[in-house]
Computed example of a mutant assay.
Amino acid sequence: MLKIGCHLSVSKGFLHMGKEALSIGANTFQFFTRNPRGGKAKAIDERDAFALRDLAKENNFTTFLAHAPYTLNACSADQRVREFALEIMENDLKRMEYLPNSFYNFHPGSHINQGVEVGINHIVNMLNTLLNIEQTTIVLLETMAGKGTEIGGTFEELKQILDGVILSEKMGVCLDTCHIYDAGYDVVNDLEGVLGEFDKIIGLDKLYAIHLNDSKNPFNSRKDRHEKIGEGFIGLEAITKIINHPKLRNLPFFLETPNELSGYAKEISLLKGLYKE
């Protein structure tokens, strides 16, 4: 069974997202934990969270994926911005326990000319401050396109972060197909080579989820602009190989393509038809 979902708005509550996912043929979904361009979070209704958990169990949902706000920059040169990132993630990880055993994904951030090593140290320090043995949430570093002073555009940078985290069992990676293609990892012509490199540097056991996106820009462009499935430079043939690859096919895939709900429904139907059971 293809584990597939898309990004949904949490504004109407957890149960509403679950019902929306079912309506478009999804068996999971991703959501922002709070305003993606700010820091404000909607209060969690415990009954709503429990209702989603019941719905998910009844319908064999796979793992949910929460996404940190874009404003979170754990490696900023500004100490207050780093403190804000710590406060946001600390609160998010507490809130995530209403949906036990989920994933929490975040962008490593931009070092703003401090240098990669300094930036990575900031990220590691934050994670070592926050992570605790009791949490059920696995925190995922997202692969990035490598634009500007962004950290996470190479597997080596993600490995450095993972190696510095004490509670390594609470960490993993979310691979974004658009991002790594834009960063110079050729999933179109050399998927085996890319996965082999990931396995050698990070380890495929650390790959927990995939953001399945086409790219508006060509290979190695470092632009990070998502496109609808089959309409970008990655293309439907390569995406079909990704969802069916023996080392990837059992992972959850999350669409972040530029779509409304009806567009996601069409993409999910298309991908299910291309998935080899």
Rank of each mutant, 00 (worst) to 15 (best):
R225L: 09
A145T: 03
R47E: 15
D190I: 00
G232W: 00
A56V: 05
S262F: 08
N259M: 06
T28H: 12
D190H: 12
F29D: 06
K147M: 01
E58T: 13
C174V: 12
R225K: 14
H107N: 06
A21T: 09
P246G: 04
E156K: 08
H111C: 05
E58N: 13
A26M: 02
G13L: 01
K266Y: 12
I123D: 01
G146F: 04
L140V: 01
L248H: 07
I166N: 14
A26H: 02
T28K: 12
T129I: 02
P69D: 06
E134N: 10
D54Y: 10
D190A: 11
K159R: 14
G172V: 00
L255M: 08
L271G: 04
V165F: 03
N121P: 00
E87M: 13
T62Q: 11
R34L: 08
A66C: 09
P36T: 12
E83T: 11
A26D: 02
N217Q: 15
L248N: 09
A56L: 06
I24Y: 11
C6K: 02
E97L: 03
V139M: 06
F254W: 01
T257R: 05
L191I: 07
L72T: 04
I88T: 14
Y185H: 07
S102W: 03
I24S: 10
G119F: 06
F14I: 02
F32R: 05
C178T: 05
L207Y: 13
E157I: 01
L270T: 08
K266C: 10
K228A: 12
T143L: 08
E277V: 14
A41Q: 13
I151V: 13
A238K: 11
S221A: 13
F103K: 01
S168Y: 09
S110A: 15
E83D: 14
E90M: 09
K247G: 00
Y185I: 01
L130S: 01
G203C: 08
L130Q: 04
I120F: 07
L127A: 05
S11W: 00
D163Q: 08
Y264Q: 11
F84V: 02
G153N: 03
I120K: 05
A209Y: 07
G235S: 09
E227I: 02
F84P: 04
N250C: 02
D186T: 01
L65N: 15
G196S: 12
G18N: 07
K42N: 14
H7V: 06
A56E: 14
E237S: 14
P258G: 04
G203R: 11
H111G: 04
G13H: 01
D224E: 11
T71M: 15
A183V: 00
D199I: 12
C174Y: 05
R225I: 07
F233R: 06
L158A: 02
V118I: 13
L191G: 06
F233A: 03
M17L: 00
T129K: 12
T240W: 07
S11Y: 00
I133G: 00
R37Q: 15
H179Y: 04
G235L: 06
L162T: 02
